[in-house]
Computed example of a mutant assay.
Amino acid sequence: MKSDQAAITEHLVTLRDYIRWALSEFHRHQVYFGHGHVSAWDEACQLVLNAVDLPWDTDPVVLDARLTPAERLKVLGYVHQRAELRRPLPYITGEAWFMGLPFHVDERVLIPRSPIAELIDQGFEPWLRPGPVSRILDVCTGSGCIGIACAFAFPEAEVDLADISADALDVARRNISRHELDDRVRACQGDLYAAIGSERYDLIVSNPPYVDADDLASMPEEYGHEPALALGSGPDGLDVTRRILREAAEHLTEDGLLVVEVGNSEVHLMSSLPEVPLIWVELENGGNGVFVITAAELRAHCHLL
């Protein structure tokens, strides 16, 4: 291995050289791009630039700069993790972006990628009732990215981040502090709503585990680095979502709103709850499987849940 490294570092000297080599390694090992980039070029650029402590939007003229021997070895280590170990890029760099905000991530949490970002950006219009939003709950929060983004979108609101995983909440707390939101955002440990007792919210948002058994068994290797607890949810992917739906009305204000992402398990939910008026959001920026339902509709159809 050391002789291979020596040969590579002897012949590859510039950032451009290492980006090209990373691309070749990605292709040779057939890596999967689904945790931040869909382009091999973008991912190779970010990986190499991050290894030498340069931002992703560095002036391209820098690509012809030569790397120090230590930097070359660090790039090799990053590429090894990404191409051979199939570790997602955000876990290598320790950072992912969601709605233009940076978040610390590691293998204790999912990598942020929820299409709920589009709804946050729109203030959940037209489904969220007009007026101020006082309290928001992010259930199955993981890194806290959705709840923290909501805190920025609704600066008057207090936000609770709930998760069953103490490890995930350690990451969420780090992100709360990173964004200086300790005065408005808190992390609460417990199984779904058990984390928050009898509290009620104007808005409950959740990206719960929703991968069904078949999809879980066939996912690319990269997903094996993410916590299994945050991915799979029974044969049809809806074990957790059904509980979120059944208990949500008890934790929403009279005119509150529930927003949940279920991804490809959308078809299972439609077929199992055909009479429940879930509104499936058409997402302009891609993605699928996000529904909204009001507290009033949840209460009117509680016998079906």
Rank of each mutant, 00 (worst) to 15 (best):
P209W: 01
H179V: 05
E156I: 02
P60M: 07
P220T: 02
V171H: 00
R28S: 15
G147I: 00
L298M: 09
G34V: 01
R178C: 09
V290N: 03
L203S: 07
D57T: 10
A194Q: 10
I120C: 11
H27V: 11
L119F: 12
R173L: 14
F154N: 03
S177A: 14
A296R: 05
L76R: 06
T68D: 11
R129H: 13
A70Q: 08
L137M: 04
V260I: 14
A7D: 12
N288P: 00
L258W: 00
R186M: 11
H11Q: 15
L110V: 10
E199C: 15
V38W: 11
L257W: 01
P209V: 00
G234A: 02
D59K: 13
V48Y: 00
N264D: 14
P126H: 02
R184C: 12
E226I: 02
L258F: 09
D53Q: 14
H27R: 11
N288G: 10
L269I: 12
L137A: 14
C188T: 04
R82T: 10
A217V: 11
E247F: 15
S198A: 15
E250R: 07
F33S: 06
V61K: 10
D215F: 03
P130N: 13
P277Y: 10
N175C: 09
P227C: 04
P277A: 10
W280F: 08
L85C: 12
V276W: 02
R174K: 15
Y18C: 12
Y78P: 08
W280E: 13
S39V: 06
D121G: 12
L305S: 07
